[in-house]
Write a protein that binds this DNA or RNA. Structure first.
Lengths: 345, 345
DNA sequence: TTGTATGCGTTATCAT
DNA sequence: ATGATAACGCATACAA
């Protein structure tokens, strides 16, 4: 029969068994140099034997530090975020930090809840990609930032905040590079399937498209651009709509891989050849791009690097003694990945 | 200037401001009926004003309950797990539970670490889909289960444990249904791309294939079955290998959507028509199945339902007073989703 | 209805 | 090198 009603072993239990004091056990378990090597090993052996599980939350309560990073993303089943999180975990692992992931499901109300929950769990820092339903969490974030709480935004950052510590990619550059690639391949009539323009990531991809077209002296008219709403369905409809217009495109730059693939599918069903009759390039470099036929060219957003850097900056802010000023934004460069769907004309 | 060095508001701060006692504040915040409606509102208003953030870990330490569920999956960027987690969160939300998600990256050593971490974080229950690198965590799980700790496995469960509380799908039935569907469509020479047979999910899908073939009196010989290793690349090679054999298949049932799609791609590149020359059906019902052309038929594993049920059972085990016996396994039925790739012959 | 006292498991500051 | 003690923020049994 155990000493206590709960069967959980604590440092007190170990101390009791060994005729020691709890503080010694605590020190031994934490590899404190003050405690003799002999007792240290004794304690560790006993801890193993008694199946001791350190209570991290008690330690966190006492220390005021949990060694935990909180992450909020719109949805973890989006491969981009999955890969960002992978990068975060890699970096956190190396620094002895745990990672807790929450989903906002693109609702800013839920995002706020998640932030509260994570703060209640005493996370030492926050990594956030804000919901598309960009609500009024700005106050919250402004307060958090100016209170000196370690926070890093990534990918989709709150738009109307002045100084935001963030890691983002240069979407405009990405849009430019994708379009430029098509131009270099010899295409002239290039259409753009753009995303909702109130989201700056989509707005910037569109601006990059315009940059490249203008630079090359190519015409952009009402027929060239079409806005898509939902990722999944509308690529097909968008393509069919484009194809009906009086000046048919030779190539399409889509702001999303999903609509690119579904547009491509619509093209194939019309009996068109890709890229001979119509070329495609998407954005995000989703894993399935390699699987479809023809394989879809795209723009890679370096999600793993993004996660690593964001985590690194957060951890630095946490561990550095002096309350340094919030880092400003760091901008990553996107990279065009050329596959079959945008071969030379 | 704040009363304390730390700027975090505690119930003591609120009590001080209001000339009350911390316990009253605690009660008020928890909607305890004992405290008068008036003070309750007063406290809540003050809490809001002072931007009070409840310290959940302190509460958890005191209560011995964290209202948190720990989830361990091989990788969150696999859409199946993403959807299971969605189901878990839905269920947990409704019951006032938080969810912490960790990844094992298919390493049982890391899986063990994650379990320890989560237990250290005082999660009230554990939901686990075990790593493919099925190591020797059996002792750990056996101990956990018999100690009465609320734990639920899902999808991939530890194989060599007798009584395992788990929610799984009937993979054998799924393999049978997929193959049966092809048979019903009129195909006779049906090949199977099977996964590593030491994993029972793949073994069962293979057995289901055999069931259906045998039932229909169709021949299965050495040419019919091929084992694939990595999801991504080997579908192509596997298909080319199958196509070289003396009896070419008319249809292929692949144990994974990834290899099905990449096999399909290889077929298309050989100039074959799908499904006229060769039909395909995969397994898992990945989202990209709808996007590829032709759209890939597959077997749906009901991931959201799986998550909901697993969470529900875990929460029930947590909240029910009596230490009831561990639930045994609950088996979900998979559903064939017919798309273009397996049209009638 | 509210206040007082205690403890959850750990770590840090003393003292020895 | 080790022990005694207090404190982290909260919830609860008990007292008033």
């Amino acid at each position: 029969m155990p000493r206590k009603k709960s069967d959980k072993t604590t440092i007190h239990d170990i101390a009791y068994e060994l005729g020691l004091n709890a503080s010694t056990v605590s020190r031994a378990l934490n590899d404190n140099l003050a405690v003799s090597k002999k007792t240290r090993e004794l304690v560790k052996a006993k801890a193993l034997e008694m199946n001791y599980q350190p209570n991290h939350i008690a330690a966190a309560l006492r220390r005021g530090r949990s060694n935990t990073l909180g992450v909020v993303v719109p949805a973890i089943d989006r491969s981009f975020f999955g890969r960002v999180i992978r990068g975060i975990e890699e970096e956190a692992d190396g620094a002895g930090f745990r990672v807790i992931v929450c989903q906002s499901f693109d609702s800013s109300a839920r995002e706020r809840e998640m932030v509260d929950t994570l703060r209640g769990l005493q996370v030492d820092g926050l990594l956030i990609s804000v919901a598309k339903d960009t609500g009024d969490n700005l106050d919250l974030y402004q307060k958090l930032i100016s209170s000196g709480f370690p926070i890093q935004f990534f990918d989709n950052v709150p738009s109307s905040l002045e100084v935001v510590p963030a890691v983002i990619i240069d979407d405009r550059r990405g849009g430019y590079a994708a379009t430029r690639h098509l131009i270099d391949q010899g295409y002239k009539r290039i259409a753009h399937l753009r995303g909702p323009q109130h989201l700056h990531i989509y707005r910037n991809r569109y601006l990059g498209y315009l940059d490249a077209m203008q630079e090359a002296g190519l015409e952009v008219n009402d027929d060239s651009v079409l806005e898509i709403v939902s990722h999944f369905d509308s690529g097909k409809e968008a393509f069919e709509e484009l194809w009906k217009r009086k000046t048919r495109p030779e190539a399409i730059f889509s702001a999303s891989d999903f609509s690119a693939v579904s547009g491509m599918k619509a093209a194939l069903q019309l009996g068109l050849r890709v890229p001979e009759d119509i070329a495609f390039i998407g954005f995000s470099n989703e894993p399935f791009n390699e699987l479809v036929s023809p394989a879809l060219s795209s723009v890679d957003q370096q999600p793993i690097t993004m996660g690593q850097i964001a985590a690194k900056r957060a951890i630095k802010a946490i561990t550095s003694e002096d309350d340094e000023q919030p880092d400003d934004r760091l901008v990553l460069m996107p990279a065009v990945v050329v596959r079959e769907s945008s071969g030379a004309k």
